[in-house]
């Protein structure tokens, strides 16, 4: 009888204990996202987070709220945030400025190539068009022939293909992406997307409503 009690009692107590521990672990994880950039706030980082002349921006440059986002074109979570940025840019209009910075993770095969195509398109004033096409069709090119799909995008937005090819070969283009990446590292970015609002690292909002509320709280 006591063995039976020990077995079944042990099972119930054991499962309860495991459940408790796992919930604690999951809770800790969600409470402390890796996005938290420890170094944000000091003067070097404030400088990095200032919108620059060569940044890709969407919105009003004089807006009271500036959202700087370090993002990766192949990261599915980034696609999710890109679509939210679009919605909020439309909704909030001149009240907010979105700044896109490259943070291509090395564990994605085509991230850097996507960044290069976006940059090259940018030289023909079509960064955001290319940005949108890349994110919207992420699932397609992520598992296909990415380069030929990017070329189709370029063609569809009527880029000068000869110029594009020339720009793609330009080492300055890769340097620019690398510079964003290094800035991100300096800021302590460990995951994408990483958001900074008015120079502060913020926890990624989980929904469009949370994101909107967060931006509004900085107005």
């Amino acid at each position: 009888m006591s063995k039976r009690f020990a077995l079944w009692g042990g099972l119930v107590v054991g499962l309860a204990a495991v459940t408790l521990v796992m919930f604690r672990m999951a809770d800790d994880e969600s409470a402390a996202p890796e996005t938290t950039a420890a170094g944000a706030g000091n003067s070097v980082n404030e400088e990095i987070l200032e919108p620059r002349q060569d940044d890709w921006i969407k919105g009003n440059p004089d807006a009271g709220v500036i959202v700087v986002k370090y993002s990766d074109f192949q990261c599915p979570a980034c696609r999710f945030y890109a679509s939210m940025d679009d919605r909020l840019s439309e909704e909030l209009g001149d009240d907010v400025l979105f700044v896109y910075r490259h943070f291509p993770l090395r564990n994605f095969e085509h991230s850097r190539l996507a960044s290069r195509y976006a940059e090259a398109a940018g030289r023909q004033d079509a960064f955001w068009e290319m940005h949108d096409l890349i994110y919207i069709n992420q699932q397609q090119w992520s598992r296909g022939d990415a380069e030929s799909i990017f070329r189709q995008f370029a063609d569809s937005i009527e880029l000068d293909m000869d110029q594009l090819d020339e720009d793609l070969q330009d080492p300055e283009l890769s340097d620019r992406i690398e510079a964003d990446y290094e800035d991100g590292q300096e800021l302590g970015v460990r995951s994408v997307p990483s958001l900074f609002i008015n120079g502060e690292a913020v926890e990624n909002p989980r929904s469009l409503d949370d994101y909107r509320d967060l931006i509004i709280s900085y107005q």
Binding site: M22, A26, D27, S30, P33, C78, S191, P193, N204, R206
Partner: peptide
């Protein structure tokens, strides 16, 4: 333990990101 962790993450809702 693994399934409980995934269930807990589902309900507690981590932040969607991709990490290095």
């Amino acid at each position: 333990a693994d399934a409980v962790y995934l269930t807990a993450s589902h309900y507690l809702g981590g932040v969607p990101t991709c990490t290095v």
